[in-house]
């Protein structure tokens, strides 16, 4: 293909997206589009399955049967969401095993918030309320993204996720209406998860490398800073209802802008965690790699069995 032909194809392609047409797996697409999508969708999928670990940490210790089944169902949903997203990614010509390989080798990233430890039960509340809250802000616009399989996966994810944030907030609410010890537990969880949740929405726009291109392809509809502001604006009143204090002395309603002003985010900490030096990076990776390696013989056995059954079907005489 000549450069001119390629340029023409790219123009048609960009025009289709601008016209709100969806791109489907077998359609022609620029290599960069494919690569960017593999990166973003897989990163998203990895975040779901690594995200199972901090919450999975409390399944055996959930304080009531009602909380236990809700938490189990939530962590199970995350496995499901990982699965939908890996499947969407596979339509771009890469296998789930290859994607795992990228995760396990450290080549692929996942949301750095899951590298923080879940220390108390209140963290289950804070994660549902804040982390899922931030995730929803990120995810809802993606239901309308340009790549068909990703958009469809996100529609399913968002539909299922609607209970996650509610169950988190309900946990917080119960704690805040409880004993002094429970209120303290809730406040402590908010103190530890507030800033990482703000960081979760990504670096400030000036340092975000992918934003412009991602906007064009509808991988992003708003910038990181806009999303962060939206998150703060909607979450602070919720903290007020809970009677909790957001751990930011500079947080203040700004009548003029109609938004909350907030304090400086510690980006050094963010980059430290992204680069693999957060409190739980190693534990999370060991858990993922461990589960995968411990499962090899199981997956192999299932394949061997399937082949034997197939052979029996095709050569009934030879079967013993």
């Amino acid at each position: 293909m000549s450069d001119a032909q390629l340029k023409n194809l790219e123009e048609i392609f960009e025009q289709r997206i601008a016209n709100d047409e969806k791109i489907e797996p077998k359609d022609w697409m620029p290599e960069k589009y494919r690569k960017t999508h593999i990166r973003q969708i897989s990163q998203h999928a990895h975040s779901e399955i690594v995200g199972m670990l901090p919450e999975g940490n409390w399944i055996t210790r959930a304080p009531s049967l009602r909380r236990k089944v809700a938490l189990l169902a939530k962590v199970q949903d995350e496995a499901g969401h990982g699965l939908y997203l890996y499947s969407a990614c596979e339509t771009l010509g890469i296998s789930r095993d290859e994607l795992y390989e990228q995760l396990h080798s450290g080549k692929a990233k996942y949301s750095s918030i899951f590298n923080y430890p879940t220390v108390t039960w209140a963290d289950m509340g804070a994660i549902g309320w804040l982390v899922d809250g931030a995730a929803i802000i990120n995810q809802v616009p993606l239901c309308n993204t340009s790549y068909g399989p990703y958009a469809r996966a996100m529609i399913r994810v968002c539909k299922e996720e609607s209970f996650h944030q509610r169950q988190g907030f309900e946990i917080m609410m119960t704690l805040c209406n409880g004993t002094e010890a429970q209120k303290q537990m809730a406040q402590d969880a908010l103190n530890r998860w507030w800033w990482p949740s703000l960081m979760m929405l990504g670096p400030v726009d000036a340092e975000s490398v992918h934003t412009e291109q991602s906007m064009k392809w509808k991988l992003k509809r708003k910038t990181n800073d806009e999303l962060r502001q939206q998150f703060i604006d909607q979450t602070v009143p919720q903290a007020d209802i809970l009677g909790l204090t957001v751990p930011d002395p500079d947080l203040k309603w700004n009548e003029e802008t109609g938004h909350y002003d907030f304090g400086e985010i510690n980006w050094d900490e963010f980059w430290q965690v992204v680069k693999g030096h957060g409190p739980c990076n190693k534990e999370r990776m060991n858990a993922r790699v461990g589960a995968w390696e411990k499962g090899t013989w199981v997956r192999d056995a299932a394949m061997a069995y399937a082949e034997k059954q197939q052979n029996k079907k095709e050569n009934p005489a030879k079967a013993v």
Binding site: Y84, R156, T296, D300, M303
Partner: peptide, 30 residues
């Protein structure tokens, strides 16, 4: 050995009277 579980496409009928619709995919050995 390392043979991967192949990919399957899943079609679900949500209730009688409706057609099966593509829901997504997953991996399975058989």
């Amino acid at each position: 050995m390392e043979k991967k579980w192949p990919l399957w496409e899943i079609f679900v009928r949500s209730k009688n009277g409706l057609e099966h619709r593509h829901f997504g995919s997953l991996h399975a050995a058989d």
